[in-house]
Structure formats: structure tokens, C-alpha cells
């Protein structure tokens, strides 16, 4: 079973605007950018309860965060903006898995850009798929050619000795 891992980079996702000042409790809020991944099998079935390991760009050996996907195969995390670069996310279940790379922008460049600009910058990242990237038609033609190769081989050797 092959996995299709689609990523939706959600920027400015979490914002808690809770007015809560009572008994000396203060709540502050800030906006952070999170990454949501959604993992599914090739059949379109979501990879529910799959294990997710998140690695920072600096330390690809030790997971920075661990978790599991929900029933819809989704998992979101908030990368540490002080470590820009290629974050790696491994989704794995029952021997099926995929390692995908998520670029996290440098906070310095992020600050210089305006808010809608950041969103536009994130657009190319919104669909990262590790699959071959062939359209269904291209894949159909490739599969057809391979099958024709096998049939051709069979016909070639079936013509018998002359």
C-alpha cells in the first residue's frame, strides 16, 4: 500500500482570544503558524491512529515531537520558528510509512513580509506529495505500457522455433 501524504500548511491558525482575568490569572495570546498533515492510504482511506514523528532540521536522529493522527489521518504541530529549514515528518503504521519534508521559513524573513504575503509564500508548499507526481492519465499510460511489454515478451517467445 502506498501512501499519499498531503500537507496543508495552515498559517495563523491558532489564536486564543480569551478574556480571562479572574483570581489573578492572566491569559496572553499570540498567533502561531502550525502545520497540518493529513495522511491517507492510496485507496483514499485515512491513516487513522498512525504514529507521527517530527524531526527538527538540526537533529534528524532524535524526534522533536511524537504523536498520532486522528480518525481522519490528520495531525498538526507547531514548528519552532527559531529553527528554520527542512523539518521532517515521519508517518508510520503497520510497516507502511512515509518521510516527508516540510520547509519552515526563517522568522526574520517572515517578519519582513506582510501577513497576506506570507500566506502567498506558503502557497507552493500547500501540496507536497512524495508520490511520483504523475497524473492519472500518465500513470495509466505507463501501466499500460508495462503490461504491453509483458504481453509482447510472451508473444515474442510464443512464436516458436523456426
Amino acid at each position: 500500500m502506498r501512501l499519499n501524504l498531503t500537507l496543508a500548511l495552515t498559517l495563523g491558525l491558532a489564536g486564543w482570544a480569551l478574556p480571562a482575568i479572574a483570581h489573578g490569572v492572566t491569559v496572553e495570546h499570540r498567533q502561531v503558524s502550525s502545520v497540518e498533515i493529513s495522511a491517507q492510504f492510496e485507496t483514499g482511506e485515512p491513516m487513522a491512529n498512525a504514529q507521527v514523528l517530527v524531526y527538527t532540521p538540526d537533529n534528524p536522529a532524535e524526534p522533536w515531537q511524537q504523536g498520532t493522527t486522528d480518525d481522519q489521518g490528520r495531525f498538526s504541530f507547531t514548528p519552532d520558528a527559531s529553527q528554520p529549514g527542512s523539518w521532517e515528518v515521519m508517518v508510520r503504521q503497520a510497516g507502511h510509512g512515509v518521510l516527508t519534508t516540510i520547509p519552515v521559513a526563517d522568522p526574520a524573513s517572515e517578519n519582513s513580509a506582510s501577513s497576506p504575503g506570507t500566506e502567498a509564500d506558503a502557497e507552493p508548499n500547500s501540496l507536497i506529495s512524495p508520490s511520483t507526481g504523475l497524473s492519472p492519465v500518465q500513470q495509466g499510460i505507463t501501466i499500460g505500457s508495462v503490461i504491453w511489454g509483458f504481453i509482447g515478451t510472451a508473444l515474442f517467445f510464443a512464436r516458436g522455433k523456426r
Binding site: A94, I147, F150, I151, A154, F157
Partner: peptide
């Protein structure tokens, strides 16, 4: 080489077979 036609056709069947999913709850 006598059995190559048979082998080649079954290789094609093997190649295609892995795309045929059978739902066996809870997995497929």
C-alpha cells in the same frame, strides 16, 4: 525459453494484482 510466454503473462497479472484491493475490516 519454452515457458517464457506463460511466465511473462503471469508477471503482468502479478504486476496488476497489487492494485486490486479487497476490504477486510478493519484493514484493506
Amino acid at each position: 525459453t519454452a515457458e517464457i510466454p506463460k511466465a511473462s503473462l503471469l508477471t503482468a497479472a502479478f504486476f496488476v494484482a497489487s492494485s486490486i484491493y479487497i476490504p477486510v475490516p478493519p484493514a484493506s
